[in-house]
Write a protein that binds this DNA or RNA. Sequence first.
DNA 1: AAAGACTGTTTTTTTATATGAACAATGATT
DNA 2: AATCATTGTTCATATAAAAAAACAGTCTTT
Lengths: 304, 304
Amino acid sequence: MNNDLNQIRIFCQVAQLQSFTQAAESLEIEKSTVSNKVSQLETRLGVKLLQRTTRSVKLTDEGAQYLKFCQQAMHQIELGEALIGDMQQQAVGHLRVAVPQNFADVMASMVVVPFLSEHPKVTLEMQQGAQNVDLIKDGFDLAIRASFSEIDDSSLIYRKIYQSQRIFVASAEHVAKFGNAINIQQLREQPYIASFAGERNDTSFNQVYVDGRWHTLQARFTVNSIAAIVQSMQANLGFAIMPVTMVRDKLASGELVQIAPQVKLTDSVIYLVYPSRKGQPAKLKAFIDTLVCWGEKMMLKNHR
Amino acid sequence: MNNDLNQIRIFCQVAQLQSFTQAAESLEIEKSTVSNKVSQLETRLGVKLLQRTTRSVKLTDEGAQYLKFCQQAMHQIELGEALIGDMQQQAVGHLRVAVPQNFADVMASMVVVPFLSEHPKVTLEMQQGAQNVDLIKDGFDLAIRASFSEIDDSSLIYRKIYQSQRIFVASAEHVAKFGNAINIQQLREQPYIASFAGERNDTSFNQVYVDGRWHTLQARFTVNSIAAIVQSMQANLGFAIMPVTMVRDKLASGELVQIAPQVKLTDSVIYLVYPSRKGQPAKLKAFIDTLVCWGEKMMLKNHR
DNA sequence: AAAGACTGTTTTTTTATATGAACAATGATT
DNA sequence: AATCATTGTTCATATAAAAAAACAGTCTTT
């Protein structure tokens, strides 16, 4: 290559150390390379930068002038790389996260608050309902997905952080009124409160796999918030499908009760999706850690 | 090479043009090279700098931060190279010249004054009596040599700018007193005013080649200034050896007369010596031009 | 809806470059 | 003063990088 920037680094080193040999050693290259690169640079610029005897190396007038600029340039690059190093070690900068519609409220209290207080130099942007965004194109650092069918997309890292059994739950009053259903047919006759995970026509959350085929429950009421569903159940609007962990406390206190335990549902699984595992900035590592930690805590709660 | 500065230029170009393909075209390299270099840079820094789809290229948070520093660095280098370009085109800077002892006065009026007035941005340092200096080691841009024996030194450019017949001259009064000598023996009996060109023991200027061997004239008075010698002759201190051109006017006006025209002297030759012909800064080119021009004018005067 | 144009990446081949030894030149040392 | 150690440069060879072509996506257009 004619216009080789490495010539400049090498020239700087020679000029600074006043020696081709020492420059070669410090850069861990051959002195013949040093000699050639400096010659190339001189030829390209059309100026002799260094006057050299076999015994001494001195800057020419032009070389001294040029060196100043080169040294500043090298310094700028050093500063830049130091900054990158810092960003790798310390969580700083802006983080854009895509979360499913029905997860915002769960995240806010249990993840966002502790994360932001632990990492004061990070700013967080959480975009709800951006379930199927293109991480790279739309500039997200991370997405949380609650898909039940795993999507295979190379170049993206999928990481399961949470898996929980889902159950049918309702208020005690609801059970008293409709009876405790024991199969899918009976459930379909009871009012159902649906959630949707992502896109408008995404019905995966409302599908029940029984006897080798999928049954879709028709919803009386649909809302994209876990908290709203719980409240609706307590208002006796109907039964719902919930991850066990989400309603563990309500079940313990008797506010909600499980119905149709014989009917098995697929698990609720939460994935983290992010582009490329290597070269993660510290801010992303930190957020992933927080999420993984949260997932583990939730799972423990489940199996307690 | 692991730490390749060219990665940075390429990254800058990609980031600026938001395209690998366009960056490759503008840098006149292959897009595969661009792709590889950016990947190398990312690997080295351990950060993804650019998020890329097959259709779009976007800076990451880290990439944007890093880019700022890289752009500044590139800008610095551009400034430096622009300066070098100017120095090549416009005579600026400091010029160190070594001249023989007996040339300073000749140079001052006929070369230095017109040169400095024509090139106001050049500062000139003229070191007298530095005849046999090491151009490179001692940091001279140019030396003027009046050697009679050509020295062969590779890596140095020798350029003859002036050659003149030397003659014996004296004042008319001197001739009246001592008679017009016709051979070397007669000359040796007359008082001789000597010059020396360089080192203290340099007698080449006072040697006369006659009948196949060298004769050294014993000087009654030695001084290292052409002007002083002329004045001394006019004060009838003795005869001297002078290049014809130097005393052309004095001979024409009758102030000085040639003696012993039968005795042939070697020519006076003036050389320019400078390191490396290519990559000369404009200041040096300009000074060489002035000297060559001066030499030609003097030679013309001679043959008129 | 399907083909085409254009993106960035990967792979193979060709080219260029770094290397290491020998070299010429200089200063220090004996 | 002569040898020795060390400098920067040169040259043949091994190595690494750039080029060229093939590839796998994505968006546009017919």
